[in-house]
Amino acid sequence: MILYLIRHTTPDIEKGICYGQANIPLPDNFNDEVDFLLSKLKNHPIQHVISSPLLRCTQLANKINPNFSTDENLKEIDFGDWELMDWNKIPQEEIDPWMKDFVNVAVPNGESYMDLYLRTISVYQQIKNDYTAIVTHAGVIRSILAHITQTDLQDSFDFKIPYGTIVKIDTQTNQYQIL
């Protein structure tokens, strides 16, 4: 089975702001980014699209296939109390324990990376349709790549996933390539 993991395009938010499940709008150049992304997919027969329900993903999913579905488990990590805060203004006593063990330590009123991993892998393991695209977020994509490559979650940030990245996975062999 062939699966495509697609990270949403650039959101309209200042650099340095912590966001995960906040519903961030898209900038005016959204269609330019989408056109480029769609040109990369034109020779790939995507038949099914599942998206994170967040706006930055659903708008892209709609451009790929207007008959897409959504799954709450494909949302980015829940940053709880830190959503839409400047990373530099998060209290040191809150961020230090998380930075030391972000895999297992949950953000205040949010979740840990392990929480994201478990919900993401549950979706990944349920996909049965060939040529499915998942439109989602960097954390979700990294967790799936960590799963298929047996990479420790704390090392999964070695997978570079810029906005608009497309990862093609052969789920039989767990081989992947960035398109």
Rank of each mutant, 00 (worst) to 15 (best):
Pro108Lys: 03
Ile77Asp: 12
Asp35Asn: 03
Leu26Gln: 00
Gln21Arg: 10
Tyr4His: 05
Ala138Lys: 02
Asn23Met: 01
Leu118Pro: 07
Ile178Tyr: 09
Leu74Met: 12
Leu60Ser: 05
Lys75Gly: 07
Gln126Pro: 04
Glu111Gln: 13
Asp28Trp: 04
Ile127Pro: 06
Leu84Pro: 03
Leu54Ser: 11
Trp87Pro: 05
Leu118Thr: 08
Asp12Cys: 01
Gly20Ser: 00
Trp82Gln: 13
Gln92Ala: 09
Met99Glu: 11
Arg7Ser: 01
Tyr113Lys: 09
Val135Leu: 03
Arg119Leu: 09
Asp130Arg: 13
Ile2Asp: 09
Lys168Asp: 06
Gly20Met: 00
Leu145Glu: 02
Ile46Met: 04
Ile50Trp: 04
Gln172Glu: 15
Ile178Asn: 10
Asp101His: 10
Asp12His: 02
Cys57Trp: 06
Gly139His: 07
Glu93Gln: 12
Pro45Met: 06
Gln59Thr: 08
Trp82Met: 15
Lys75Glu: 13
Thr9Tyr: 00
Pro25Trp: 00
Thr151Gln: 14
Asn65Ile: 11
Leu3His: 01
Thr70Ile: 14
Asp35Met: 01
Asn43Thr: 10
Lys75Met: 15
Lys160Glu: 14
Pro45Glu: 09
Ile90Trp: 10
Gln92Ser: 10
Gln177Leu: 15
Leu84Asn: 04
Val49Asn: 04
